[in-house]
């Protein structure tokens, strides 16, 4: 049936990866997954681990749901999606506890809360239910990276300005900023500043990408 088989990385498929990075970013454009973006971006390391966890969970569940999409009865599709996500999250959580206990403790409840992350449900419902596994896989990579990129940008600024470190390395101390009277900004560690940082990212993005500005 697949006479004109699409190449694996056709431009349509590539768009699945590149779109969520910019013009259809899950955080800055769709404004999903804000909760975890505020909670775990105090330091870079947990943010990166979180980004990877979300990517793993989303990739697997997207492919699984996409493979099952014809046999899932529409009336119970949400619960099926939840079961798939939840099992993946538990797996990831256990792996983190086993191999990265410190980070797992810092992320605390937020790994478990990946289940309720709107990005995942959104991708499963909006994409995987209607597309083949391979595009679903690419879509998962794209959206999880779009999420992760924002997470890492926010965490970079929050850790640098809030604690003066990067990955725990005391950058500001090494270049002697404290000797001339600099002090860490305590507000950067508090959640409101994460929201404001995301707001500024959205502002910058829209200033660059005019197509995103809604018509009045």
């Amino acid at each position: 049936m697949n006479k004109e088989r699409e190449p694996l990385f056709s431009s349509k498929n590539l768009k699945l990866i590149t779109d969520p990075l910019n013009s259809n970013n899950p955080i800055t454009v769709q404004v999903l997954g804000i909760c975890s973006a505020l909670a775990i971006t105090v330091k870079l390391k947990p943010a990166i681990v979180m980004a990877i966890s979300v990517m793993v969970v989303l990739m697997v569940s997207n492919v699984v749901i996409s493979a099952l999409r014809k046999s899932i009865p529409p009336r119970i599709r949400i619960i099926v999606q939840l079961v798939v996500i939840a099992s993946m999250v538990i797996l990831v959580d256990q792996v983190l506890k086993a191999f990265a206990y410190d980070v797992s403790k810092q992320l605390s409840v937020f790994v478990g809360l990946i289940i309720t992350n709107c990005i995942l449900m959104g991708r499963l419902e909006a994409f995987a239910m209607g597309n083949k596994p391979w595009p679903s896989f690419l879509d998962a990579i794209g959206n999880a990276s779009g999420y992760g990129v924002i997470l890492i940008i926010v965490a970079f600024f929050r850790e640098l300005l809030g604690s003066g470190t990067l990955f725990g390395y005391p950058v500001f101390q090494k270049i002697g900023l404290y000797n001339i009277g600099y002090e860490n900004n305590g507000l950067m560690i508090l959640p409101p500043m994460a929201l404001i940082t995301i707001g500024i990212i959205i502002w910058v993005q829209r200033a660059k990408n005019r197509a995103l500005i809604e018509e009045k």
């Binding site: 002090e183 900004n185 305590g186 507000l187 950067m188 508090l190």
Partner: peptide, 10 residues
């Protein structure tokens, strides 16, 4: 408020 939360020591 910014000063109060960012630099409580001052």
């Amino acid at each position: 408020a910014f000063l109060f939360f960012a630099y409580p020591g001052w």
